[in-house]
Computed example of a mutant assay.
Amino acid sequence: MTTKLFESYKLNDKITLKNRIAMAPLTRCMADANLVPTDAMVEYYAKRADAGLIISEATIIRPDGQGYPNTPGLYSEAQIEGWKKVTSAVHANGGKIFAQLWHTGRVAHPYFWGGEYVLAPSAVAFDGTVPRMRELVYTVPKEATSEEIAQLVEDYAQAAQNAIDAGFDGVEIHGANGYLIDQFLHFDTNHRSDEFGKNPENMSRFPLKVIDAVIARIGAELTGLRVSPAGYAHMTTDARDRQVFDYFLKEVEKRDLAYLHEGMFDDSMEFDFLGGKVSKYMRETYSKTLMAVGGYDAETGAQAIENNKFDLLAIGRPFIANPDYISRVQHNQELVAYNAAMLETLV
């Protein structure tokens, strides 16, 4: 029943995946004090190279993008060199790996880089504390100026170039889950009245500038994008967001990216303003390669691909519990069950 998952899949003329299963980006908080990938991370990714595509854990584009402890970066020479070890090990085992480019926006915290403030679309704080560091309460962000937005665009493009220099096969722009790019796309977090707010075209402007800058630097064929039209993480849903994503996804489609990745933790959730599941809405709105994630197993994912609901399946926590996930599914072997204690080590 899972045969469909093990067909090769051509993303474009530059990249063909050996199967339709991607390892989803999984935040592990295991980089060193300078946010450099460690030898344990090298081994961790190399063991999972049987996936058609590995998407790296979210990786910050510059120091003020950090919102969690020990998340790796892609802005220093040491970080680039550290990632070279990871990509070399994955390639040696026959795999492909994209770097997920990340800035957390209003859910960053100045503690991590000794700064005065965090940047966001608007000066609207997230009510809560930093995961793994509950003593840190989120601060009221500074509304980014036009000049600061222009610098962020450049820094995304530079991070994309750094990823290619580090040996990655491409990048995935993290535009989902309530982080910086996603904050511009939702009314709950974007209260601007300038060219970056108030209506779908303006709210999409910064995300599209980032996409275009990355494409200009490394090419559309090497660029993926993750989005979450339903504002379920770090923000409150607003029915008007549908108008933003109707516009934004049609603009994204014109860019001919490697793929579009649905950023849901649970794709069984339905949203009235989207007419049902997020993956269904995205398939109806975007006609090119779509990757889905969120609660699927190999059988349900394969069936959904057979039914043309999406093209690629991203698997998350089962990859933490099963470095040999691909082999186990292929040979119909029982999977090791995931549990939260597995987050304490890299295996």
Rank of each mutant, 00 (worst) to 15 (best):
D194R: 14
L260N: 04
K14N: 11
L274S: 01
M342I: 12
A216L: 10
A108L: 06
A220G: 06
G295R: 00
F273G: 07
A163V: 08
W83K: 07
E154V: 05
G175A: 08
A123I: 01
E143K: 14
A230N: 03
I54S: 00
H109R: 05
V244I: 12
P229A: 01
N202T: 06
V124W: 06
I21W: 07
V118Y: 00
G95R: 11
N202H: 15
S327K: 14
A49V: 12
K280H: 14
G219H: 08
N332R: 13
D297G: 03
M133K: 05
M23Y: 07
Y45M: 06
A176I: 00
L35C: 12
Q161G: 12
W83Y: 07
A46S: 15
W102A: 01
K309M: 10
G73T: 11
K142M: 09
S193R: 13
G295C: 04
T145D: 08
Y296W: 13
E135T: 07
C29R: 12
R62S: 09
L312H: 08
T27M: 10
V140P: 11
A24M: 12
H103K: 12
N12G: 04
K10T: 14
A163W: 01
K254F: 09
T289H: 13
S122F: 10
A120G: 02
F187K: 06
D241N: 15
F6S: 09
E284R: 02
T236M: 07
M41D: 09
Y111P: 01
F98R: 00
T145C: 04
A99Y: 00
F184C: 05
E154D: 13
F273W: 13
E195W: 05
N34R: 09
N308F: 09
A304L: 03
D194F: 13
S287E: 07
T87R: 08
A341C: 01
F6E: 13
W83M: 08
L313Y: 12
L290A: 07
D13F: 00
F168Y: 15
E154G: 04
A120D: 03
P131R: 13
A78W: 06
P37D: 12
R317I: 01
Y111L: 03
L180G: 04
E135Y: 13
P72K: 06
M41I: 13
K198W: 08
V227K: 02
A340Y: 10
P141Y: 01
N332M: 06
T223R: 11
Q151T: 15
L208W: 11
G52T: 06
T129E: 09
K209D: 14
T145W: 07
S88L: 09
L343T: 13
E251W: 00
A31V: 10
F184L: 02
A78S: 14
T285Q: 14
A49S: 15
I173C: 05
K47Q: 14
Y338V: 04
G105M: 07
L274K: 06
M282C: 04
H331N: 15
P229F: 01
E172R: 07
R132I: 10
Y156Q: 11
M291D: 01
T345I: 09
D297K: 03
I173Q: 07
T300V: 05
P72Y: 01
T289E: 00
A258I: 03
D64R: 01
A40E: 15
H186L: 06
